[in-house]
Nucleic acid binder design. Sequence first.
DNA 1: TCTGGGGTCCTAGGACCC
DNA 2: TCTGGGGTCCTAGGACCC
Length: 450
Amino acid sequence: MPRGAFSDHSSPDMSLTAFSKRIALVDCNNFYVSCERVFQPDLQGVPVAVLSNNDGCIIARSNEVKALGVKMGVPYFQVRPLFERHHVRVFSSNFALYGDMSQRVMSTLARLSPDFEIYSIDECFLDMTGFGEPLEYAKEIRSTVKRWTGIGVSIGIGPSKTLAKVANKLAKKDQTGPGIRMLEPGDELEETLSALPVEGIWGIGKSLARRLKRRKIHSALNLRDASDRRITRILGALGQRIVYELRGISCLSLEEQPPAKQTICTSRSFARSVRTLEGLQEAISTFVSRAAEKLRSQGSAAGVLTVYIMTSHFGESSKYYNSLVLELPVPSCITHELLNYALIGLHRIYKKGYDYKKAGILLSNIVPSGSIQRDLFDRLGEPAGVSESPRRRGERLMKTLDRINTEFGSDTLIYASSDLRKGWRTVRGHQSPRFTTNWRELPLVKALLP
DNA sequence: TCTGGGGTCCTAGGACCC
DNA sequence: TCTGGGGTCCTAGGACCC
């Protein structure tokens, strides 16, 4: 069944007497902190926090730190005095380690259940439908993962992914409990849903919660019991799916084969600001080679490359943001080909005299690399079966580069994806650059298109 | 002084075709 | 003078997630 498709449900069973599925969500507890603790047992029982890149903000907290009221994502400097008072042990992030630990956890789970979907670095859905004693089995999973990897997990079980999420939340909340929770039809489920505000539901954020509350839908129970028509009017197709999931009718199937990425981005904030073009070139080169690796590892090639640079959003210093979208003549996953374009783009958007705080690239229009040949022939108008020699390919690319250099004039700018613009708009009183979102109109892109 | 990085899905509306 | 309507594809942007 495709993602988001409904099963047949002409009259949903509101009595919830018979759940047809059993889905478990296994979620690692305070994952990054747990990883650090595995290798440093003396961290057990003491407050621990993990920081983002450049030690900017808090991205993981042990229970002790959560108890201090420290929220996810707060800037480190704001809580520093508090941390010092409570002797919080603080770590810079080590994503290589976390990725490795994640793999160990996931392969352990894979041995325990045949049907699973890795949902994020620290979460995995398992299909337990038909398993005799789900709670017993969950206990087994929990202790095995702990024994083999040293990582503690919480497990929530429900008839749909959304309810498994809810159950998991409860399992986490109950710190002294077994770390396992199963939701079944009955009074307890009603109570749970009525105590859960809509923004606590998976898939409903701040904005949608506001929309719902304006219409007097405050709890998950309110939402579950609202009429289909009403929900569709307020939330569209997304809402329909959530409501069915809350009713215990599974609409989201397990994605066992992770689909190839549709976009790949690599970006970093700099620890110290960068002023020179050379400094940015160095960063961009690193980004491109990393992104190209990701592309190749999933057997893809990218047709469009965006490069962007920006100063800080914060503070009073003068601000600058710029980006450029480049369409490659042929989708590529070759580092030096991508790099040529990225560096040309960078050269166009770089302006002297600013303190750059962040840069990045985004690869999009990603296709399987197998189709590159065919696409190439289309563009060249050549019959399939006649391959282009490497030399000819090289000459063609060089010509394109020449054309860019001669034809592309002054850079009046520019393109920004919605994410980037959003960040920029938050800068108060700042004169926004001229944005366009139609990258086909950009002079450089026009120059590149045949 | 110091504020993360990497993704996905849905939808409205325009372009285009017949 | 009068100026259709339905279907499909694409894009930009909003919203969400960990």
